[in-house]
């Protein structure tokens, strides 16, 4: 069978390594690439190669960018005194889409996870501390995910940073805007109730 050919197997495995792709889908994608017009397959591989070569991580904030430093880091209109810490580039992109945040970002590329061997040095926190000093940051907003590891990372950072001139804040968690209470899961509602405030 064609799926057994070594070159095809390599292709299937490459697709499988992509997030959200299982064995079935990987095979479907591979078969599509093999049956589509040849130039479409070439376009795909060229696009991957080119995009990969064109995009790097920003030397300052660690976000994905095509220029270095990235557009946000080099934009003087952004508030340099406020830094939003996210786990991954996707987190920064999500907040950018919101359109109201005017500060800058710092991407950790991970969170503390002892079971997976990820400690502070894997998150390259030295770079973060240096930035805070060099750029005169006054507020650090920790926007790591609301997972056990994200929470622990937020706690750790607040312990390391809070104090001398820097305020550390954590983004709020709770019921999504425009969403009915009945659609929120138990854990979210519990946290939303714990985090209630007077109106």
């Amino acid at each position: 069978m064609v799926l057994d050919a070594p070159s095809v197997q390599r292709l299937v495995e490459a697709f499988r390594r992509l997030p959200g792709i299982g064995k079935r889908t990987a095979e479907r994608l591979a078969l599509h690439v093999l049956t589509a017009p040849a130039d479409e397959a070439v376009l795909l591989s060229e696009s991957v190669k080119e995009a990969r070569a064109a995009i790097t991580t920003c030397s300052r904030c660690g976000n994905l960018t095509d220029i270095n430093p990235c557009a946000i880091c080099s934009d003087d209109r952004r508030d340099a005194k406020t830094l939003c810490i996210v786990e991954r580039p996707a987190g920064a992109m999500a907040i950018e889409k919101g359109g109201t945040y005017k500060g800058r970002y710092h991407v950790l590329h991970g969170v503390l996870n002892p079971l997976e061997g990820i400690g502070p040095s894997e998150l390259r926190l030295d770079r973060l501390y240096k930035r805070i000093q060099d750029e005169g940051v006054r507020e650090v907003i920790v926007a790591t995910n609301a997972t056990a590891e994200g929470e622990a990372t937020a706690m750790y950072l607040s312990g390391q940073l809070d104090g001398d001139d820097v305020k550390v804040t954590r983004i709020a968690h709770g019921v999504p805007m425009g969403g009915g209470l009945e659609f929120a899961d138990d854990a979210t509602l519990t946290h939303a109730l714990q985090g209630r405030r007077s109106v």
Binding site: L112, N113, P114, L115, G119, P120, A148, E149, E151, A152, T153, M155, Y156, G159, Q160
Partner: peptide, 26 residues
């Protein structure tokens, strides 16, 4: 979940107090 992570930290050869305390509130 938090206990597993905290215990894993405690198994490491050198334990930082700051890192350990990061798991305490949850």
């Amino acid at each position: 979940k938090a206990l597993r992570q905290r215990n894993e930290l405690l198994r490491q050869p050198r334990v930082s107090r700051d890192l350990l305390e990061a798991w305490d509130p949850q």
